[in-house]
Structure formats: structure tokens, C-alpha cells
């Protein structure tokens, strides 16, 4: 099953490589990984998307907890949660296609943030599925470049991951 694991990490050099190294050494897969500092400059927040059986996920969380740089972790998929991913996507936009593309961007509630005579650059936020759907709808031939941020996630309601 797909799991979204949130990690509070010491904001120290090497901490990220410990997490990445753990995944490669033990053969766990990483679907996406995002990391950035939090309001507390000594902490980074990482969101990691992985897939595995319950046993594998249990090992992953235990092994992550064992890393000295890992302060706290939470498997968001165990409860109600929100996930968002941001995508920047550059599209070939020429002739009649331009209007059509713009409509599609509107339907998906995206924003065109850069325009040239032949391209649109679109910013789109949503779940991974929504971004996938947009890519599908556009069709491969029109896509010049995609950049996806990877998933960020947070628990719904009162529940939160903090010190």
C-alpha cells in the first residue's frame, strides 16, 4: 500500500543522506521525497511517499526512528490527512491550441504563470492524482517539461507532528 510518512529531522548536514541511505541500503522504495526547514530553524520537515506491505512499512518506520537525526515521525496514511503536490509544467501552445489549453488549465484550477508566443508555463497544485490527470488530459505531445515538487502532507484536525 501507498504510505505518506512525515518526518521531523534535525536540520543538519548529512541528515537527508542518512534517510536516503537507509532506503537504498534496505531496498525500500521512495516514490517521492520533499524536505525543507520549518518555523523552528533547527528542524526540517520531510514528507516521504513509499509503498510496501504492512510488515515493510512497520520496518521502515522503526528503522527511521532508529536514525539519530530523526526526531519524530508520523504515518499520515493512518488517519485523515491532506496531501498536496505542486507542478510546474511547460506546454507547447500555438495557434488554435492556445485557447483550448487555457480552458483546460482553468478546469483544473491551474495558473498560467509564464507566456511566450509558443509556450505556456502552468502552475498546478493538488493531489498526485490530479496532477496525473492533468498530464493525461494535455497529452504527451504538448508537454515540453514537467517539474513536480513531490508530495507534502499534513494530518487533518487537531493532530499534528511537532516537538
Amino acid at each position: 500500500m501507498r504510505h505518506i510518512i512525515s518526518i521531523l529531522l534535525e536540520n543538519e548536514s548529512g541528515a537527508l543522506s542518512r534517510v536516503a541511505g537507509l532506503f537504498s541500503a534496505r531496498g525500500y522504495n521512495i516514490e517521492s521525497l520533499t524536505v525543507a526547514p520549518t518555523e523552528d530553524p533547527s528542524l526540517s520537515r520531510m514528507t516521504l511517499v513509499t509503498r510496501g506491505s504492512d510488515d515493510v512499512i512497520e520496518q521502515i518506520t522503526k528503522q527511521l526512528n532508529k536514525l539519530v537525526d530523526v526526531v519524530k515521525i508520523m504515518d499520515l496514511t493512518e488517519g485523515p490527512h491532506l496531501e498536496r503536490e505542486m507542478m510546474l509544467i511547460k506546454l507547447r501552445a500555438v495557434g488554435d491550441g492556445r485557447e483550448e489549453l487555457k480552458r483546460l488549465v482553468d478546469i483544473f484550477r491551474g495558473h498560467i504563470i509564464d507566456v511566450t508566443a509558443s509556450t505556456y508555463t502552468v502552475e498546478l497544485t493538488g493531489t498526485g492524482d490530479k496532477l496525473d490527470a492533468f498530464i493525461q488530459a494535455i497529452g504527451e505531445t504538448k508537454i515540453l517539461e514537467t517539474v513536480r515538487s513531490g508530495v507534502s502532507g499534513i494530518a487533518r484536525g487537531e493532530k499534528s507532528l511537532h516537538l
Binding site: S13, G14, S17, R18, G21, A25, V68
Partner: peptide, 14 residues
């Protein structure tokens, strides 16, 4: 050294 030893230490420091 920190990189090379990472998978075979409990922890390491530079």
C-alpha cells in the same frame, strides 16, 4: 569518512 562509514555505524559526526 562520514559518507563511507554511514551504513556501518550507529551514528557519525564531522
Amino acid at each position: 569518512s562520514v559518507g563511507i562509514t554511514r551504513p556501518c555505524v550507529k551514528h557519525n559526526f564531522l
